[in-house]
């Protein structure tokens, strides 16, 4: 482990706010959505009956869309750096994927140094972007153009929306496990959920490349 002392700001305030909004929306949308699909009436009652649950689902869908959109527009720099990070795949990333970052017990091997996000997180980033995009392009027509669309298209939207949800829920479940439960990585939980900081030592270990650039910057300033 590295000897660095101090703290690193990993997630800025607005990023954390956006993450919280998205998180809360996602959970409620997921619960109500599963309630509709599998006709679980208890869930609908929590939200005041099936009609109201549907209203909640739709308007939270709006928040779920507008939230990140506003974030992207007001934090274009952060968004661009994030996209740049997750769209850069180097040999180290592929090596990380080969050993799955050492998270899977059976897979042994040296874990190469990583960016601000490791290869797994990069893939999750893309998955989230794609899933959200699909939610938007199927969800809003299901609501606003339900009368105008031909039935086959409306049916397709429902199917895509459901399978998209299945994939997203599984991915987010994995994300939650690694970020909040897994002993190796849960140290980062607080950074997104509370103040945004991680221990420099942790960062130097998990995100060696990124930390190196930060160190470089601060040395230059000093």
């Amino acid at each position: 482990m590295s000897q660095v002392k101090g703290k690193v700001l990993k997630h800025a305030g607005q990023t954390r706010l956006m993450h919280w909004i998205h998180l809360i929306c996602f959970v409620i949308l997921g619960i109500t959505g599963l309630g509709f699909y599998f006709k679980i009436i208890t869930i609908d009652y929590i939200f005041g009956g099936i009609g109201n649950a549907s209203v909640v689902h739709r308007w939270l869908g709006v928040v779920f869309t507008v939230g990140p959109l506003l974030y992207i527009l007001t934090n274009f720099g952060r968004f661009s750096r994030f996209i740049d990070t997750i769209s850069t795949f180097t040999k180290d990333d592929f090596k990380w994927l080969k050993t799955m970052g050492g998270y899977i017990p059976g897979l042994k091997g040296e874990v190469p140094p990583q960016d601000k996000y490791n290869a797994g997180q990069k893939l999750l980033g893309w998955l989230v972007i794609i899933c959200c995009f699909l939610f938007f392009v199927t969800g809003f027509p299901m609501w606003l153009w339900r009368h105008a669309m031909p039935p086959q298209l409306l049916g397709l939207c429902y199917d895509i929306h459901f399978w998209d949800a299945v994939i997203a829920i599984l991915a987010v479940a994995g994300h939650f496990f690694l970020a909040a439960i897994h002993p190796k990585s849960r140290v980062e939980f607080a950074s997104m959920m509370t103040n945004g900081y991680v221990e420099a030592a942790v960062s130097a270990h998990h995100n060696e490349k990124w930390f190196a650039t930060l160190q470089n910057d601060s040395e230059l300033k000093a």
């Binding site: 099936i50 549907s54 339900r146 105008a148 039935p151």
Partner: peptide, 17 residues
């Protein structure tokens, strides 16, 4: 979808119901 197809408004139920 059906409630927009129905020519007589015989179908009841809101979106989600």
């Amino acid at each position: 979808h059906c409630s927009s197809i129905c020519p007589t408004g015989a179908i009841t139920g809101k979106l989600g119901q």
